[in-house]
Design a protein around this nucleic acid. Structure first.
Length: 953
RNA sequence: GGGCGCGUAGCUCAGUUGGUUAGAGCGCUACGUUGACAUCGUAGAGGUCAGAGGUUCGAGUCCUCUCGCGCCCACCA
């Protein structure tokens, strides 16, 4: 065994600072985001760094692969909230990262006109003035909304700048822009021509407050505990005591009788007021109890009407009485029954959900809930109320205003979804669209498999007017669907009336990835940038938006152009981020008052702190919980990181001087230099990998751990004496070069996450001589892999060195050695490599571990049969300290033995597998090969362990 | 009713095809006026990986069941 024994000769402790060389600090000790961020952003924007040029795209013969994201357009009414903060930070990270990687990066920003939401805002304003939109009139109202949009709308786009979003603002879009409106109309007409848009009478979801139809997705079910009433309907045409015979003469049993002798049936309902619109009662055709009642009539109470009993398989004989009241005008299932049996549909509600003129007199004009109470009371009074029970079921609410939605028969425009859904389903099944987290794939496919037609008309004024005109001449009744506004009826020359409705907001959003690029024109943008690369959004709008964009893309950019729907898929990756919630897990909302204003956070801690905090928590598939009542704690990860980055950067800058440095020369590098540059290589790889699979939290953690835990905690400390000139000019110059290199790489790596601080530091970084550096990190090159910098040996030695220091520190704390006391330490059992390193890095180690003098030997120090270090306190007390972390022989032997046992087990397992003929013959070749490699490597490991163990004995 | 997912430190979460001593941030405790940073440094406490059973040389990881929680879809009137 190598018997090196070295003693670290102590140089003068506390060598005086070479103050002459140290530049005076002109960098503020605190990072001031307010003074920095806006200035940098304006510089970036005006320099045009965010603008993409179609000519650079490889699809246009250029040099750069395009990387494109279209923003999920926030509502024009929106004010930035944490959800926006998160999603736009994510998109900005991706865009900045890819821009640095040399892609032609394009991030298209814009806003959505948001039909109901925006109309509501202006209607509220009117209400404050005591007016309604009806009083103002359609034209004036729309004008008023426009002026609101022009004035206040789009605030959110300004706010996106404040968090650093590097959007191409020259391409800002709005769903009601002229261009996008043209796309909307074009799509409507094309779909109509292909019979994929149709007008029909269906039960739709009606919001009596917003006075418009809602799509299924806009009606949000909410679990509600209500009541279910059981009502008695008397059998008609029966004389008291006539016997158990119906009109048809068939015997039926089991029907109870009213006091007046009439028999009755029982139906159940959660909405008793709708019974006023009943036009039948249904039973299951094979329900033996009621076979005799098929075709019988019942007296519908309160109405004076008689309705018949029909047989329909929809009815579940097991549920309740097995009889269902049928209200075709107010229930989707009843509507279907009504169709099958040719039943009339009586609409007993008005638009505002009051009882209509179709309802009998005493109820007319009553609010639906008031009517409910009165109907129940009337039944009770007449002895026709069989019972009431508590009942939990989900009731659909308007996603905008929360009002209970009323299912209602109405004539609306629909899109036939089946033909569009099929390619969209295939796109996912074939892996042409990938979802992260991938469990959304199943959700997406399930929805498409059970797709329903999409109600696209809305009874609003704010939105894209439906491009349909009706001839006013009733005899002609021509329907015109046109790209250009017609002036008169092409058939009879009569005057026309445009459909009063507008289109669902999503009817423009689903075209967003190509309508923003100028479709239906063949623009350079479309050619250069469609399809886009990735989409990041909230899972809530997977159906509303994501699925429909895929369908629209496949239809209009794929099938129509090349005949191949897969060519039109608008993005290959869909990233669904989590929901930002408060610390109690509740969704942040205005009404709960538990929201956090991202701009307040920017104001307090800076955009980088906000971004980093969000990213650090953005685990794949996890929601983000933030405490709104303690912003300091909530944003501490980002705030602390930003502060550390600033200070470490500041220290580095102050000690590197401003002069350019020499390029890093591998031959002159010292151990810590080689170590940190090698570590940086590992981080480049890790971050690339993590961002590729949208693991933002991991990327943030990798960078934090590297910069804080390695660069700041160890490298800067190790390099300090050299920078101060304690080791001579040559060593100092190498340290400077190396530090510049480390900082340059690190700042580049961190820039996509924390763009402001990194830029501010990077701009002040000295340059290596003869190297042309970019003018901004925004357009700087992403660090590329440099295998020549990977140095496993340096990493191992440094790891051991770090352990020496940590162990000494631990023991100092454990033995309560006062901080002022310096130790003399003898370290035994070190490898020659480590011993050498301890000698070479002696002064730094002494500093870090606060050791006065240390001796190292490869021989274990034997005291009480244990290896360890011997330390002498300045006070003269003699203290033996076992360096357990490094060199406890006993422990090491046990560990090795355990590991041997484990490996032996693995060898048994792999060999057993390889002896299995079935496995060897049937398993795929590469699997068997891998198993062989595993077996070999286990045997190898076993041999190495055996040798080590032998050496210890 | 159908489907998907989750229970790991006080809190929020990592934990790659089963394999060293289960990790991080925040919080907590002790010490610290060390020449970048107290938004800091050093050290530390804290986990029967929800519970039970099973497969395996080996289980936080795979299987079964139980308990607790979340989400999506469809809605039985």
């Amino acid at each position: 065994m190598n018997r090196t024994r070295c003693v670290l000769v102590r140089t003068d402790a506390r060598s005086p600072m070479p103050n002459a060389q140290r530049p005076t600090p002109e960098i503020p000790t605190r990072y001031d985001p307010k003074a920095t961020e806006q200035r940098l952003y304006e510089k970036w924007e005006s320099a045009g760094y965010f603008r993409a040029d179609p000519r650079h795209s490889t699809r246009m013969g250029g040099e750069r692969e395009p990387y494109v994201i279209v923003i999920p357009p926030p509502n024009v009414t929106a004010v930035l909230h944490m959800g926006h903060g998160l999603n736009n930070t994510i998109q900005d990270v991706l865009i900045r990262w890819q821009r640095m990687r040399g892609r032609e990066a394009l991030w298209i920003p814009g806003t959505d006109h948001a039909g109901i939401a925006t109309q509501n805002v202006v209607e509220r304003q009117l209400a404050a003035e005591g007016k309604t939109r009806q009083e103002v009139g359609r034209e004036a109202f729309v004008e008023r909304v426009w002026s609101w949009v022009d004035k206040t709308g789009g605030t959110i786009l300004e706010q996106l700048r404040a968090i650093g979003s590097s959007c191409d603002w020259s391409r800002t879009a709005f769903t009601l822009d002229e261009g996008l409106s043209r796309a909307v109309r074009e799509v409507f007409v094309r779909l109509y021509e292909r019979d994929l848009v149709y007008r029909g009478n269906y039960i739709i979801n009606w919001c009596p407050r917003c006075l418009t139809a809602l799509s299924n997705e806009e009606a949000e079910p909410e679990e509600t505990t209500g009541k279910i009433w059981r009502l008695r309907y008397p059998i008609a045409d029966e004389q008291p005591g006539q016997g158990d015979r119906t009109r048809t003469g068939t015997r039926t049993r089991s029907l109870a009788r009213l006091p007046d002798g009439r028999r009755y049936i029982v139906v159940a309902t959660t909405r008793p007021e709708t019974m006023l619109g009943d036009t039948a009662v249904a039973v299951h055709p094979e329900d033996e109890r009621y076979v005799g009642l098929h075709g019988a009539l019942v007296d519908l109470p309160l109405t004076g009407r008689r309705i018949s009993i029909v047989a329909d398989a929809y009815v579940d004989p097991e549920f309740g009485s097995g009889m269902v009241k049928v209200t075709p005008a107010h229930d989707p299932n009843d509507f279907e029954i009504g169709r099958r049996h040719d039943l009339p549909a009586i609409d007993v509600l008005t638009d505002e959900a009051r009882m209509s003129d179709e309802a009998p007199e005493p109820f007319r004009g009553l609010d639906r809930f008031e009517a409910r109470t009165r109907v129940v009371a009337a039944f009770e009074e007449a002895g026709l109320l069989e019972g009431v029970e508590e009942h939990t079921h989900s009731v659909p609410h308007c996603y905008r205003c929360g009002t209970i939605v009323e299912p209602r028969l109405s004539e609306q425009w629909f899109v036939r979804m089946q033909p569009l859904a099929e390619p969209a389903l295939a796109a996912s099944r074939e892996g042409r669209v990938r979802f992260t987290p991938d469990r959304w794939k199943k959700v997406y496919e399930h929805w498409l498999e059970n797709i329903r037609d999409w109600t696209i008309s809305r009874q609003l004024w704010w939105g894209h007017r439906i491009p349909v005109w009706y001839c006013r001449d009733e005899a002609c009744a021509e329907v015109i669907v046109a790209r250009e506004d017609p002036t008169s009826c092409p058939k009879c020359g009569g005057s026309l009336e445009q459909d009063p409705d507008v289109l669902d907001t999503w009817f423009s959003s689903w075209l967003w990835p190509f309508s923003t690029m100028g479709w239906p024109d063949e623009t350079p943008d479309l050619k250069a940038f469609y399809p886009t690369s990735a989409l990041s959004t909230a899972p809530e709008i997977l159906f509303f938006w994501v699925a429909r964009m895929i369908m629209a893309g496949q239809e209009f950019m794929g099938r129509e152009r090349t005949g191949e729907p897969m060519d039109g898929i608008p993005f290959q990756d869909v990233y669904l981020h989590g929901t930002v919630r408060d610390n109690m897990g509740r969704k942040m909302s205005k009404s709960l008052g538990n929201g956090i204003d991202p701009l307040e956070v920017v104001d307090l801690f800076g955009a980088d702190a906000l971004r980093f905090t969000l990213l650090a928590q953005a685990g794949v598939g996890t929601d983000i919980l933030m405490n709104p009542s303690d912003l300091g704690e909530t944003f501490s990860p980002g705030r602390n990181f930003a502060n550390k980055l600033w200070n470490a950067g500041r220290f580095a800058l102050m000690n590197m001087g401003e002069d350019d440095v020499a390029r890093v020369d591998a031959a002159t590098l010292e151990l810590p230099d080689r170590w940190i540059l090698s570590r940086a290589q590992a981080v480049v790889q890790a971050v690339d990998q993590q961002l590729t699979v949208f693991r933002f939290a991991d990327a943030a953690e990798s960078l934090r751990q590297f910069f804080w835990g390695e660069v700041a905690d160890w490298y800067l400390e190790l390099v300090k004496p050299r920078l101060y000139g304690d080791h001579g000019d040559a060593s100092r110059d190498v340290a400077r070069s190396s530090l510049v290199e480390v900082m340059d790489t690190t700042l580049r790596l961190m820039h996509p996450l924390v763009p402001f601080i990194t830029e501010e530091l990077w701009l002040r970084l000295p340059r290596p001589r003869d190297v042309v550096r970019e003018e901004s990190l925004v357009i700087a090159k992403w660090p590329e892999a440099r295998p020549e910098l990977v140095d496993r040996g340096a990493e191992q030695t440094m790891a051991a060195l770090i352990e020496v220091v940590s162990t000494v520190r631990t023991l100092r704390a454990e033995y309560n050695v006062p901080a002022g006391d310096e130790l003399e330490v003898f370290i035994g059992g070190a490898t020659p490599d480590l011993a050498g390193a301890v000698v070479r890095e002696g002064s730094a180690i002494r500093r870090l571990a606060r050791i006065r003098e240390a001796s190292v030997t490869a021989e274990p120090l034997q005291t009480d049969g244990r290896a360890g270090a011997h330390a002498v306190l300045r006070s003269g007390a003699d203290l033996f300290i076992p360096l357990e972390g490094i060199i406890d022989l006993e422990r090491e032997r046990t560990r090795l033995e355990e590991e041997m046992a484990r490996i032996a087990g693995q060898i048994v397992a792999t060999e057993k597998k390889l002896e299995n003929r079935q496995f060897v013959e049937r398993a795929p070749a590469d699997v068997v090969e891998r198993e062989r490699e595993k077996a070999a490597s286990f045997r190898d490991q076993r041999d190495r362990l055996a040798a080590k163990l032998e050496a210890l004995r």
